[in-house]
């Protein structure tokens, strides 16, 4: 499972970095989204990966990381998703505003001169 998770993080981060460096605003937006997915998965994975270990204390089972998964990274991911969602929405608004003002979708507001 560690291999699958790290592969997923790597692929998404790689694709995200590539897209962020592209000159079109929409590509940058998708790149930022992919990067934030990669980061969210990464935060999730620092709290030790486990199957069938809910972070809810059951009676009679000692409250340690052997029996449960760590709840803190999960709450961090939740916060990060909400904040990332809001800022991505704001970026989308800016993207549309720039498109309306400049008539193009280049990140600098004008095409490069060749």
């Amino acid at each position: 499972m560690e291999f699958v998770i790290s592969l997923a993080i790597g692929v998404m981060a790689g694709a995200g970095v590539w897209l962020v460096l592209r000159p079109r605003t929409f590509q940058v937006l998708i790149g930022l989204s992919l990067l934030s997915y990669a980061v969210n998965l990464f935060i999730f994975s620092v709290g030790s990966l486990a199957i069938d270990k809910a972070p809810i204390v059951k009676p009679g089972l000692a409250a340690n990381l052997l029996n449960y998964s760590d709840p803190l990274p999960q709450s961090l991911v939740l916060t990060a998703i909400v904040i990332g969602f809001a800022t991505t929405a704001l970026f989308l608004v800016l993207l549309l505003a720039l498109r309306g003002l400049s008539g193009g979708d280049h990140v600098d507001g004008e095409e490069e001169k060749h």
Binding site: V20, T25, L90, F91, L94, A97, L98, L101, D108
Partner: peptide
């Protein structure tokens, strides 16, 4: 808006 886009990114 142009500077803002760069700043936000």
């Amino acid at each position: 808006v142009r500077a803002g886009l760069h700043y936000v990114a």
